[in-house]
C-alpha cells in the first residue's frame, strides 16, 4: 500500500474541527513552508504527495522540485474559486471564464467544439488546460475533485468523467477520480471494463472504521473494496478527520485491500509515527 501526503493541513481544512483547521492554515502561510513540509515527508518515506490546484498549489507545482522517484498527485479544480464566481456572476460566467483563460490554440479547437456541440464534455480539455501547470511532470496523477465528480454522477453524466480520464491519459498523465459516492461511480465505470486506462486509474474515496462520511454505508464500501475492481483504490479520511484512535484506524485500514492511502497532519512527527504504524508488520 502506498502512502501519500494529503494537503488539507496546508489549506485549513479540518472536517472534525474548524478552529483547528484555521490554526493549522496559519502554520503554512508561505509557499516555502509547504514545500519544505512536503520534502520532509517524502524524505521520511512517504511515497508521494497530493496538492490542490489553488493558487499556492499551482505555484508549488510550477516552481518547486521534488524527488523524482516520488509520486505527485494533483487535484483539480479549486472549487471555492468557481463557487464564488457563480455566486457573484451566475452560471454562464463559469463557461466564459474557462474559454477566456485557456490558451489560444486550445480555445480555438475546444471553444469551437463547445459552441457547436454545446456538450459540456467539450469543456474537459479546456478546463484541464486551465488548471494543470505546464511543469507538472509527465506520469503524475491528475485527480478530479469530489465536488465535480459527485455533481456529474448526480447529473447522470458519467461520460464527462470518462472524457476527463481519457484526456488526462492523452496529456501524458495518469487519471484519478475523487468521490464520496464510489459505488455509484463504479456503476459508470462498469461500462468501461475493457478500457486500457483502467489499470492506471485511481479512485479515491472516504473509508474509516467509524463510517464517518463513508457513503452510502461502511458495510457497502467495505464490500466494494473486497470485490476489487480493475482500477486502483485510494482511501482518504482514514482517521475520520482526526476523530479516531490512530493505531486502531491504521490496523483497520491495513486489513482492507487498498492500493493507496492519503492522510495529512500539520506535524511531521505525526506523519512519521503514522507511517511507522502503516509499515509495521
Amino acid at each position: 500500500m502506498k502512502i501519500i501526503l494529503g494537503d488539507n493541513q496546508f489549506f485549513g481544512v479540518n472536517h472534525f474541527d474548524l478552529n483547528k483547521g484555521e490554526k493549522t492554515k496559519l502554520k503554512f502561510d508561505t509557499k516555502l513552508k509547504i514545500e519544505s513540509f512536503i520534502k520532509d515527508s517524502l524524505e521520511i518515506g512517504l511515497d508521494g504527495f497530493m496538492i490542490n490546484s489553488n493558487d499556492i498549489g499551482y505555484d508549488i507545482i510550477s516552481g518547486c522540485e521534488f524527488d523524482n522517484s516520488k509520486e505527485t498527485h494533483y487535484s483539480i479544480p479549486y472549487p471555492h474559486k468557481y463557487a464564488s464566481m457563480i455566486n457573484e456572476k451566475g452560471m454562464i460566467s463559469l463557461l466564459r471564464y474557462v474559454i477566456k483563460n485557456t490558451s489560444f490554440i486550445k480555445n480555438i479547437i475546444g471553444g469551437i467544439k463547445l459552441i457547436s456541440t454545446q456538450n459540456l464534455r467539450s469543456i474537459t480539455p479546456l478546463a484541464l488546460d486551465l488548471e494543470v501547470p505546464k511543469d507538472l511532470k509527465k506520469g503524475s496523477y491528475i485527480h478530479l475533485q469530489n465536488i465535480i465528480t459527485d455533481l456529474l454522477i448526480g447529473m447522470g453524466r458519467g461520460d464527462i468523467l470518462i472524457e476527463f480520464i481519457k484526456y488526462v491519459v492523452k496529456m501524458g498523465y495518469k487519471p484519478g477520480i475523487i468521490t464520496l459516492n464510489p459505488i455509484m461511480l463504479d456503476n459508470f465505470l462498469k461500462n468501461e471494463k475493457d478500457a486500457i486506462w483502467l489499470k492506471d486509474l485511481i479512485v479515491c474515496f472516504n473509508i474509516n472504521k467509524e463510517g464517518f462520511n463513508v457513503f452510502p454505508s461502511l458495510e457497502s464500501v467495505e464490500c466494494f473494496i473486497e470485490n476489487r475492481p480493475k482500477y486502483k483504490l485510494m482511501g482518504m479520511s482514514v482517521f475520520a478527520s482526526g476523530a479516531s484512535n490512530i493505531p486502531e484506524s491504521v490496523k483497520y485500514i491495513k486489513k482492507l485491500n487498498l492500493d493507496y492511502v492519503v492522510f495529512g497532519s500539520s506535524k511531521i512527527e505525526n506523519i512519521n509515527s503514522n507511517l511507522n504504524l502503516f509499515n509495521k508488520k
Binding site: E210, F212, N213, F215, P216
Partner: peptide
C-alpha cells in the same frame, strides 16, 4: 455519523 444514499 449517518449514511446517505448519495452525497453532494
Amino acid at each position: 455519523a449517518k449514511a446517505v444514499p448519495y452525497y453532494l
